[in-house]
Every structure is written in structure tokens, then in C-alpha cells.
Nucleic acid binder design. Structure first.
Length: 422
DNA sequence: TCTGGGGTCCTAGGACCC
DNA sequence: TCTGGGGTCCTAGGACCC
């Protein structure tokens, strides 16, 4: 018998994280904003009920926020990342076969959980224990393929009767479930494919399942063909318990206001490169390609400019110092005076395992010093806090710094922010 | 009138995910 | 005034090579 997939999805994850530490938020409309306090990226059930849509800019719902006392938070990724790790850790109490799919979702193979109880019972157990252990409410969808588990999860969220768990394995309800799932809700169908499918009368998951596979392939590449098979119960997407190595690492930010000066862009790009290099070393990788991009606002009326420069390194590196030099060279190439920049970013690619970096022809003493300094910097910053030791160019307090006016305390990751019991 | 053919690599763009 | 960030995969088409 094949796998039985359970998709565990945290409900309104960012909002749920905030609620753990401030129970007064229970029952109230709460939203969490994207970087720079720009758009809504998470909504409590009450906020959804007010008609606040995903991705809407904050300034467009100001009226609603005031009238209904919506509680607004800046995003607090340190907190969400930490809670996510706890949730995933809790899931591993049930089985080692956990695929961490995103910050708030995981797939499990229930066939490999012992003892095998009725799947629904198992799902209810997971739900109850996760709530008790982590404070995060979750929804569980169970089916014979990942795509069907997604469908089950989606339905479980909206059905009272499901009580947070829906098992569609060998279910007489399967066809009804598919029929009730609008085509755009299917995993892998975005706006473009949805429009294309609807134009052909394929408006729900059942019709998509019964679509000719070759037609699906023509319209949506092999991804679409695979998707149709998955809806038919033929598993094409296996559980991936070990994450594949990263192919690229990006750090980019929008600025809260216009940035025109080269010096300020240089500061921001230096900080972005520092963050990228930190992530790189944490993954045990070195990068052979550095890309820097800068752009003006896509919404402003003024003159637009957007450009990027990519540099290929002779030797892949994981040293902030070295990568920084290349990033600033790239920035110089694309910087033009007289524009109001609103966003910049750095991307690393061409990854190789750090341990396998090519030996250099002139492996001199200076280079060896470079190589030794980064682990020390990482260690100090881990112990005493980010940017305790940094390169002079990377000033994290510049005017370009991301706005986060309503961020909750770093409850779980900064000692001085840990809640006190009184 | 006819103007080689086939393989590989790279890139840009488009689609999707959370 | 104010509009996020970080990823992946697939394909077509051009460059290049023999």
C-alpha cells in the first residue's frame, strides 16, 4: 500500500503566534503586516469576517481598523521562526517522516506512524497535542496524495463538522469534496491557470481531475499533468524529509521612503550582503555568483529605473568580507544618480558545499586570516546579539531601515523580552 | 527550388508556492 | 503619504559545438 499523507497546517499562523503571548487577542480581529508595515499577510478569523483581504495594503483598510478595533502587528519573524521550530519538533514526536513544507505547514506519512489507528483519530490526536504543547491550533487534511491532502485540509478549515480534521482516504465523500473545491483553490493552480481552465469550463477540482492528461500537459506543462494524476489518487509527489540544498539565497527590502544617495544604498546593500552570508554559512555553503539589484517604486509617478548586476566569482566564497567587495562593485555598476530608489537586494547563487571550495593558486596568509575570522564573528554575534561585530559599511540603522512600528517583543529569542510571571 | 542535423548549455520569462 | 519577501520549477529559444 502507498503512503497516506497528512497535511498539518497552522491556523492563521502569525496571528496564532502573537496570541500565545497575549491571550487578550483571542476572539478579536487581529492582522499581521508584511515588512515595512505595508500589507496584511495574516488575519485572524474575526479579521477575515470583516472582509479584510490577504495582501491588502494597510492604508486601504484604515477605516475598518479604527471602526472595529482591529489589532495590528508588524511581523516578528524571530518569534514565528522559533514557534515554527517548536511545532515541527512536536510533530516529530509522532514520526520521523516529517516534511517541513513551509514555516507553518508539514506533511507526514501516516502509514509509517505506529500504531496505525483510524487516520481521523490520529489527526485529532495530533491536533490536540500540538495545541497543548505549543499553543498553536492546526488543521489536518488526510489523503492518498499530497494534492488531495491539500484539498482535505482546505475543506477541514471551512467545515464545522470536520472539527479540524478531514480524512479523504477511501472516502465516499471524495467526489463531493472535489466538486466543492473551486479550481483556483487547488494546489498548483494560480491566477493564470485558473483563468485558462475556467475558460474551458473546468471550474472545480473534480472537473480538473477528469480533464484529459495530455490537454493538461499542453496547457500547464508537466506540472499540470502531474497535478491531474495526483487528483486521481496517483501519488507523484513523494514525501521529502531531507530538504534539498539551497540554490539561491536572497535578502531584499523595500525602503520606508525614497533613497537617492549612493552612500545610503551602499549601507543597505552591505547589510543585505551580511545577512545573505550569514544564511550561507549556516547552510554550510559557499556562493560563486553575486547579484545586486536596485529599483525605484513601481507605484510612483516619477522616473523609473530598475537594474541588476551579476558577478561571477573566480572562487566560490562564504566570507562576508569577500562577498561584500563583489556586491559593492556590482552596486557601483548599476547605480545612477537622480532616482528615488525604493528597494534594493542581494542574491547569492552558484552554490557549492563550503567544504569543497576549490583551493586557490595563491593561498596566502591574508586569505587564511579571512577564512578564520567569519566563524569567530558568527560566534560572537550569536552569543551577544546580531551585529555586535560587523563590517563598517554595513550600518543596520540607516534611514533606509525597514519600518516595524508595531512589533511584539522577541518573547522567545531575546532574554530581556521573555515574559515574566507575576 | 533546394541551403545539415543534432546535442548541450545557458538564460529569460512565466508560472507557481507560502 | 502609505503597496512584502523568499523561494522553486519548467520551457522556449539562442549560442555554441561537432
Amino acid at each position: 500500500m502507498g503512503a497516506v499523507f497528512a497535511l498539518i497546517d497552522c491556523n492563521n499562523f502569525y496571528v496564532s503566534c502573537e496570541r500565545i503571548f497575549d491571550p487578550r487577542l483571542l476572539g478579536r480581529p487581529v492582522v499581521v503586516l508584511s515588512n515595512n508595515d505595508g500589507c496584511v499577510v495574516a488575519r485572524s478569523r474575526e479579521a477575515k469576517a470583516l472582509g479584510i483581504r490577504m495582501g491588502v495594503p494597510l492604508f486601504q483598510i484604515k477605516g475598518l481598523v479604527e471602526t472595529h478595533g482591529v489589532v495590528v502587528y508588524s511581523s516578528n519573524y524571530a518569534l514565528y521562526g522559533d514557534i515554527s521550530a517548536r511545532v515541527m519538533g512536536a510533530l516529530r514526536e509522532f514520526t520521523d517522516d516529517v516534511e517541513v513544507y513551509s514555516i507553518d505547514e508539514a506533511f507526514l506519512d501516516l502509514e509509517r506512524c505506529r500504531p496505525v489507528r483510524p487516520y481521523r483519530e490520529f489527526g485529532l490526536d495530533i491536533r490536540e497535542k500540538l495545541l497543548k504543547w505549543t499553543g498553536v491550533p492546526v488543521t489536518v487534511g488526510i489523503a492518498r496524495t499530497k494534492t488531495l491532502a491539500k484539498v482535505a485540509n482546505h475543506l477541514a478549515k471551512t467545515s464545522e463538522k470536520a472539527a479540524g480534521v478531514l480524512d479523504l482516504t477511501d472516502s465516499p465523500f471524495l467526489e463531493v469534496a472535489l466538486e466543492r473545491t473551486p479550481v483556483e483553490e487547488v494546489w498548483g493552480i494560480g491566477p493564470a491557470y485558473a483563468a485558462l481552465l475556467r475558460a474551458r469550463g473546468v471550474d472545480n477540482a473534480l472537473r480538473l481531475r477528469d480533464m484529459d492528461v495530455r490537454a493538461a500537459r499542453r496547457a500547464m506543462t508537466v506540472v499540470g499533468a502531474r497535478l491531474v494524476m495526483e487528483l486521481r489518487g496517483v501519488s507523484c509527489l513523494p514525501l521529502e524529509t531531507a530538504p534539498p540544498p539551497k540554490k539561491s539565497i536572497t535578502t531584499s527590502r523595500s525602503f520606508p521612503g525614497a533613497v537617492s544617495k549612493y552612500e545610503e544604498l551602499k549601507e543597505s546593500v552591505s547589510v543585505f550582503m551580511t545577512r545573505c552570508a550569514e544564511k550561507l554559512r549556516r547552510s554550510g555553503l559557499a556562493a560563486g555568483v553575486v547579484t545586486v539589484f536596485i529599483q525605484t517604486s513601481q507605484f510612483s509617478a516619477g522616473p523609473h529605473y530598475s537594474n541588476s548586476a551579476t558577478l561571477e566569482l573566480i572562487y566560490a566564497s562564504d566570507s562576508t568580507q569577500e562577498l561584500l567587495r563583489h556586491a559593492l562593485e556590482a552596486l557601483q555598476r548599476i547605480y545612477r544618480r537622480g532616482y528615488e530608489y525604493r528597494k534594493a537586494g542581494v542574491m547569492l547563487s552558484g552554490m557549492v558545499p563550503a567544504a569543497e571550495t576549490t583551493g586557490r593558486l595563491f593561498d596566502d596568509e591574508t586569505l587564511e586570516r579571512f577564512r578564520r575570522v567569519m566563524p569567530v564573528v558568527d560566534m560572537l554575534n550569536k552569543k551577544y546579539g546580531r551585529d555586535t561585530v560587523r563590517f563598517a559599511a554595513a550600518n543596520p540603522r540607516g534611514r533606509w531601515r525597514t519600518k516595524a512600528a508595531r512589533r511584539s517583543p522577541l518573547y522567545t529569542t531575546r532574554l530581556s523580552d521573555v515574559p515574566l510571571l507575576k
